[in-house]
């Protein structure tokens, strides 16, 4: 294939990757945030400490997280089929992507929220603030800088996941590299795909760093 034919395919691939990454970060980001907050506040000594709830959530996260993504895609096939009507293509890929991202993000959120000084939470309690208010106006704002860096890290991980998903035909830059590069011994195509991903990651990391710096004021 000539590059005249390949460029349009490459363009579509980039759009597909961006679509998958955006949808995953949005849905997985919100769900992961909720799950991460729940993991944090139910810890022993937490704002809404509950050993039972914490154990259930903790075990659930530990079950889903270690599953290699390429296997997770096929393992949740029935769920994907039920939700999107297909198991092939970009939209179908979003289901396992969101699932994996949610559980991954929850740990990153938890890690960052537990670093918030317990004293600051106690101060808010001593002022008569409710747990939901404390979560929304103390816990999350106090951890905002590290959270932004965490989400930037997740962005890179999600780009990686979409490329892996390329192996099972979901579209995107990963599949472009596999179908037109790897399988046709066309090194140049692979390198273009790699370059595209590097540019994407650089932009994301740069933006994330800037935002985090603003939030941390340093």
């Amino acid at each position: 294939m000539s590059w005249d034919e390949l460029w349009p395919v490459f363009g579509t691939s980039v759009v597909q990757t961006l679509l998958m990454v955006a949808a995953t970060l949005l849905a997985g980001g919100v769900l992961g945030l909720l799950l991460g907050v729940a993991l944090t506040v139910t810890r022993p000594g937490g704002l809404l400490a509950s050993r039972a709830v914490h154990t259930v959530l903790n075990v659930a996260v530990n079950i889903v997280r270690p599953i290699p993504f390429i296997i997770l895609i096929t393992a949740v096939g029935p769920l994907t089929l039920g939700l999107t009507g297909t198991t092939i293509g970009t939209v179908a890929a979003i289901v396992p992507l969101v699932l994996a991202a949610t559980f991954g993000i929850s740990r990153i959120v938890e890690q960052n929220l537990v670093t918030v000084e317990p004293g600051v939470i106690e101060a808010a309690r001593s002022m008569g603030a409710s747990p939901t208010r404390i979560i929304a106006t103390v816990l999350l704002p106090e951890a905002l800088g590290p959270l932004i860096l965490g989400y930037t890290f997740v962005f890179v991980a999600v780009v990686d996941m979409t490329a892996v998903a390329g192996a099972v035909g979901v579209g995107g830059i990963g599949q472009f590299a596999i179908s037109y590069g790897y399988q046709r011994f066309n090194w140049q195509v692979t390198w273009v795909a790699v370059a595209a991903i590097i540019v994407l990651v650089q932009i994301a990391q740069f933006a994330g760093n800037r935002l985090a710096r603003t939030a941390l004021r340093r």
Partner: peptide
């Protein structure tokens, strides 16, 4: 909660919110 609002508390480690200005902290 309403009772706590009538009792001020001052801490050894100050426990101010780093993400808020002085005004933001006092207004909280």
């Amino acid at each position: 909660r309403p009772i706590r609002r009538r009792i001020g508390m001052v801490f050894q480690q100050f426990n101010l919110m780093r993400s808020r200005t002085v005004v933001g902290n006092i207004a909280f």
